[in-house]
Design a binder for these strands. Structure first.
Length: 589
RNA sequence: GGACGCGUAGCUCAGCUGGAUAGAGUACCUGGCUACGAACCAGGCGGUCGCAGGUUCGACUCCUGCCGCGUCCGCCA
């Protein structure tokens, strides 16, 4: 159910019947104020401008057409013409009730599934997200890519697309020479790899110190790079050990974060290694890449400056080494060629925007990316501290993601103990984890800006206002009603829904907008829209809850049943919506 | 120097393909719990949408120029 699309189709038809050209945008949107109805069609004004006619007269004709299409069919109860040509549509409460009843008994909450109609085909979507650098531990900078990517993935799957996750881990490169040399020494002095690599950050620092200060170590590190890239067996064993342990670190974080990435989703940089020479050969053969100053580069005329100097994109170093440009081109080829992607989505920070723009242009020229494959680089800003500078510890180090999450859970534990001291230790731990992690994720997911954003412990771990706990609280409250009424949700008769009060109608409208929101989240890769939606839903529910008694003595059985159906729908929608964001709910909190 | 992004309430942020009187949260103030869970609700205060032009019935939104901040720009990723 997508009300907006439904109205768009109907208004479109009415517009052509009224004499407007085919394909005129009806411009349906949610009304900005209650007195303007529920939805409004603003397309007439734009069309009138083009045709140089009076918008009001034109709108009058369209409204005449709409009367039969909307009123007689029972969708709307009132259509008004306002201002210079706004068409305000007031939806019919009975129609809302009927649709909502159907939604309630649907597992997918009324969200139509891709692939069930010829105009809404299922797509294969490759999503590249998280991609931590395995040389180090995950830090706060990896949070955004990981959770935004995961939310979009879940939204796509819920809508019925086929998703292929790709965790493009940084498991290759010169820094591994130094790390492997250091690991080799540790093992030689009888240390166990797991112990040596228990603290990756520390291990990296030790290796770096030796690299900078220790006589001969840097040379050994470089030898290891050469050996590694040359496929030396002994070196490969070391590398594999390192990678395995580092991946395990990441998996711990994914587990804590409730992120769906698994081993099978890992497609690290090293995986493209065998393809890199072929990519260069192809680029050279097609005369896309040329040799310049010993390196192989692509001159991109499409991105030339005012003086006509093209943008330069190096695909192979003068020494023969490959770069991440080469790897990313190779990834394009693999994803469209082998994985048959219709769409490729990549989540990285905004600093790489230029790089991915270049990758796309070159990949399209080389036909690694056919025209019918969408390539969406979705950038996001960095986390900044209160001082507006990159978010660091007091001593200037990076903040480990694991520590951030632990702190969130610790704070949540304290708060829950205070609010509700009766929980057992086990219950407390479970709830605190869901609340703390949820708060961190929601704080981040609810922001869409591609610019940098200010990280603040207080804001992020605050449990009041527009936060995950507010939504979880709304959910728990609903469960509590069912407990109190001693009614199970699946005993409800969903046809017993009757929208009467204003607060009920607002809630009903919101509930029917889930698909609209998900479609925007999917097309724009913006989970913050879902966050806003769920907050508004919870907020409307709270208002309804205050205004419309459910279990009180003076409430009739019919009204009670109807309101319980609404409660049930809100709880299902909150649960599913939060699940898409990777945030868990609980019966009590 | 060039490219890209950003500038909205004290603070953190929404604002969809141009639409009606620019919205939330927070902070601050006023009310509401012998409770269908107050992690809540109702209300109030708070704005020259960086500045200046332009396009038009209409601009936070589109165009141009400036100011400020950030990021990137041939051999790191």
């Amino acid at each position: 159910m997508n009300i907006k699309n439904l109205l768009a189709a109907i208004v479109s038809k009415a517009m052509t019947s009224a004499g407007l050209p085919e394909g005129t945008n009806p411009a349906i949107s949610l009304s900005t104020k209650p007195q303007f109805g529920d939805y409004q069609a603003n397309g007439v004004m734009g069309a009138a401008k083009k045709l140089k006619t009076n918008p009001r007269e034109l709108a009058t004709k369209v409204v005449e057409q709409l009367n039969s299409a909307l009123i007689e069919s029972g969708i709307a109860e009132k259509i008004e013409l306002a201002g210079p040509g706004f068409i305000n549509i007031h939806l019919n409460k009975a129609w809302l009730s009927t649709n909502l009843s159907q939604t309630a008994s649907d597992e997918k909450l009324g969200v139509t599934q891709r692939g069930t109609s010829p105009t809404d085909k299922q797509q294969t979507v490759v999503v590249d997200y998280s991609a931590p650098n395995l040389a180090k531990e995950m830090h706060v900078g990896h949070l955004r890519s990981t959770i935004i990517g995961d939310a979009v993935v879940r939204a796509l799957e819920f809508r019925g697309d086929k998703v292929i996750r790709q965790n493009h881990m940084g498991d290759w490169g010169t820094q591994f020479g130094m790390l492997l040399a250091h690991l080799s020494d540790k093992l030689a002095s009888n240390e166990v790899a797991e112990t040596a690599l228990a603290d990756l950050e520390n291990f990296y620092r030790e290796a770096k110190v030796r690299f900078d200060d220790e006589e001969g170590f840097a040379d050994r590190a470089r030898e290891y790079v050469v050996k590694l890239q040359g496929g030396d067996a002994e070196c490969d064993v070391l590398w594999q050990q390192f990678i395995d342990i580092s991946i395990a670190h990441s998996e711990e974080i994914y587990e804590k974060l409730n992120v769906t990435l698994a081993r099978k989703d890992i497609m690290g940089e090293s995986a493209y290694n065998p393809d890199l020479p072929k990519v260069i050969d192809e680029l050279m053969a097609k005369n896309i890449a040329v040799e310049d100053q010993g390196a192989k580069v692509v001159f991109i005329d499409e991105m030339a400056n005012k003086d006509g100097e093209p943008s330069v994109f190096i695909v192979q170093k003068s020494g023969g080494g490959y770069l991440y440009a080469t790897t990313d081109l190779s990834a394009c080829r693999y994803r469209s060629g082998e994985l048959n992607a219709d769409r490729i989505i990549i989540f990285t920070d905004a600093r790489q925007a230029l790089h991915f723009k270049q990758v796309e242009i070159v990949a399209r020229k080389a036909e690694f990316l056919p025209d019918n494959v969408a390539y969406d680089h979705c950038p996001f800003g960095m986390m900044m501290g209160d001082d507006g500078k990159p978010f660091k510890t007091r001593t200037g180090g990076t903040i480990k993601l694991a520590e951030l999450l632990d702190e969130a859970v610790t704070r949540a534990t304290a708060l829950i103990k205070e609010k509700n001291p009766d929980f057992s230790d086990e219950q407390l731990a479970d709830i605190a984890s869901k609340v703390g992690i949820g708060a961190v994720k929601f704080a981040d997911l609810s922001k869409n800006r591609t610019s940098d954003y200010i990280f603040n412990w207080k804001t992020m771990l605050s449990f009041e206002g527009a936060t995950a706990p507010y939504l979880q609280y709304a959910y728990s409250r609903i469960q509590s009603i069912f407990t109190k009424a001693n009614i199970s949700e699946d005993q409800l008769d969903y046809s017993q829904l009757n929208i009467v009060e204003l607060q009920e109608k607002s809630l009903a409208m919101k509930l029917l907008q889930l698909e609209e929101v998900l479609d925007s989240v999917i097309s724009e890769c913006t989970p913050n829209l879902l966050c806003n939606y769920l907050y508004e839903l919870a907020s409307l529910y709270m208002t309804f809850y205050e205004a419309c008694p459910i279990l009180k003595d003076d409430v009739s059985e019919e009204v009670k049943q109807s309101r319980l159906v609404l409660c049930s729908l809100v709880s299902k929608t909150l649960n599913k919506g939060l699940d898409i964001l990777g945030i868990e709910v609980m019966e009590r909190m």
